[in-house]
Amino acid sequence: MTGHPSPSVISRYADGDLGLDEATVWTVEVHLEECADCRARLAGSAPEDVLTLLDRVSNGVDQGVTAGPAPVPERRRWSAARNRWLVWQLVPWLTMTGAVLACAVLLQAVQPSLPSLVLLLAPVAPLPGVAVAWSRGSDPAWELVASTPTAGLPLLLRRTAMVLLVVIPMLGLATDRTGVSLALALLPCLAFTTTTIALGAFIGVRLAALGLAAGWGLAVAVPAVFTADLPVVLQPGSLGVWAFIAVASAAFATTRADRFLRRR
């Protein structure tokens, strides 16, 4: 490109000179799209009647804009974020988890001789939510979701993160009220969640959550209530073991991502 078209060509273009050949008109138009200076020159050399016509059109558009309906306010952002992170079917289950934890806090206040119920419940608190987030029966659109590329471990982790985001503050509140260590509630809770996912690679997340919750209840929680002693696994000394279980099972789950491509 040699640069700007000559002023005479621009003024002929503005006049609508039929003597200009098509190729020249083309190059002028392409150039005008990108060059503000030449557009200004074109505006300066436009004949009077064109300018009045343009004024009338722009006035008409302005009037139409002011007289017409107001633009619809945008409220899309929140709805998009909500759709991606939350499965609404989780809400009743998370409410139930909160209610159970609140009951544990209440019982603790009434019967201080019992071992900390919050600590006993903490490991299994997120499991109902995780199971519901990934079961066929409770997700109405599971068949639609299952045929999309996002389905798989990333989507499961996203939903699990959502569950934890709700359950962890609840645990924080509950431990704060009963005066037990937050770490002793959180680490087993995380370890159970990651183990559920790791086990879920083989037997399905729902079954894994059910099995782990039942196992914990029968082997640890119920005996602890009867003996009125806090079990060894929930003493501060076992924190390292919980951390190890959480990390190891999470690492294992990521190596088995292909097992989550089809929901069981």
Binding site: A80, N83, R84, L144, V145, T148, P149, T150, A151
Partner: peptide, 8 residues
């Protein structure tokens, strides 16, 4: 829109 997002 949600399905379009799921379909990456």
């Amino acid at each position: 829109e949600y399905m379009a997002w799921l379909k990456e």
